[in-house]
């Protein structure tokens, strides 16, 4: 891995910024362009960049595949769970207005934040899972074909 010094230094500098930008996109999505889908993909992209430069094994040590597997189910569960909570509070499925008693607009805010978090978890984990699956499959043909 020694030949890629510039690549490694730049990546070390960039990866935290990419992850930070992902969370900015996530929580600023109410005001500007952005949201859970974009943030999830950007968060996954930061890990993918790490894997491309430092190797897949290092990425798997940083974000273990078991986390990824749990994360993708947890994201969908968080989304569905928000709907169930609104059910329990007497509203329709995914009607966030009932989340905060008496303040429907505030309830909508919290509901949207919860749902977007679920989307973030699901999308980021699924993208990482797909990348891990493809990346760790052994190539069938020799490397000299390139």
């Amino acid at each position: 891995m020694t030949p890629h010094v510039i690549l490694r230094i730049i990546a070390k500098f960039l990866i935290p910024l990419i992850a930070l930008f992902a969370f900015y996109v996530q929580f600023h999505g109410d005001f500007g362009p952005g949201g859970g889908f974009q943030a999830g993909v950007i968060l996954a992209a930061s890990v993918i960049l790490y894997a491309l430069i430092f190797g897949l094994e290092a990425a798997k040590e940083a974000i273990p595949p078991s986390w990824v597997r749990i994360g993708m189910s947890l994201g969908v569960l968080l989304y569905g769970g928000t709907g169930v909570v609104t059910w329990m509070l007497g509203g329709e499925f995914l009607n966030y207005s009932v989340l905060i008693d008496g303040y429907p607009a505030k309830g909508q805010h919290y509901g949207i934040i919860a749902v977007e978090l679920g989307v973030l978890l699901a999308v980021a984990s699924v993208m990482l899972a797909i990348f891990y699956a493809f990346g760790s499959r052994q190539p069938d043909l020799s490397e000299e074909d390139w």
Binding site: D30, G32, P33, G34, I112
Partner: peptide, 12 residues
């Protein structure tokens, strides 16, 4: 009460 209509429609 959020400015980004796309997020509002998408999530709510």
């Amino acid at each position: 009460h959020i400015p980004n209509v796309v997020t509002a429609v998408l999530a709510s």
